[in-house]
């Protein structure tokens, strides 16, 4: 029952095969087996949002998924989203607005923000605050994070308008 199982998945664009214990969470697999420590664990029960990663393009709690469940899937962590430049504008806006302090919640915040803006291009502040309800931050009081996401939504909308029809 606890014998490791071979899984094959794509992580940050790289296809790899590893052995994983059935009880190992995706979060532990990413952090411990792959050294992708940008994914954080704050509660291990799907409440705080620090462990969010993109699984086949959708934000999921990696603390609530087992690694074996990700077999055959594509996972993107903060490291991959950074290298692919998918969240560069969000990172820049967070930096300018000081929308992070200790930074422990930040990778999860960025994943949520990216997921939100993929779903809804121009969310209101209330919609941004609602979308962040599964992401706890103890340092900032949230306002700077809302500001940063709102800024990026505006910037992305403006750059879309500039594209030729």
């Amino acid at each position: 029952m606890t014998a490791p199982v071979a899984i094959t998945l794509t992580v940050n664009g790289e296809r790899l095969t590893r052995l994983a214990e059935p009880r190992e969470t995706l979060a532990d697999f990413l952090r411990r087996d792959l050294g992708l420590t940008g994914t954080h664990l704050g509660c291990e029960m799907g409440v705080c949002g620090a462990c969010l990663v993109m699984l086949d393009g959708t934000p999921v709690h990696s603390c609530l998924s087992f690694a074996v469940q990700a077999d055959g899937s594509a996972v993107e962590t903060i490291e991959g989203l950074t290298e692919s430049a998918a969240v560069t504008d969000l990172q820049q806006a967070f930096h300018e607005r000081n929308a992070l302090q200790c930074g422990f919640c930040t990778p999860g915040m960025l994943v949520t923000a990216q997921g939100l803006l993929a779903r809804k291009a121009s969310p209101s502040r209330e919609e941004i605050r609602d979308a962040l309800s599964g992401n706890y931050c103890r340092c900032t009081g949230y306002e700077a994070i809302v500001d940063a996401i709102e800024t990026v939504a505006r910037r992305r909308a403006a750059s879309r308008e500039e594209l030729p029809a």
Binding site: L36, I78, T82, E96, N98, G103, T106
Partner: peptide, 19 residues
Amino acid sequence: VSRPNAKRLLAGRGRYVTD
């Protein structure tokens, strides 16, 4: 001014004891 050391945290390159 922005915090220079915040960039690594934004990139998931923070090094916490948990890591």
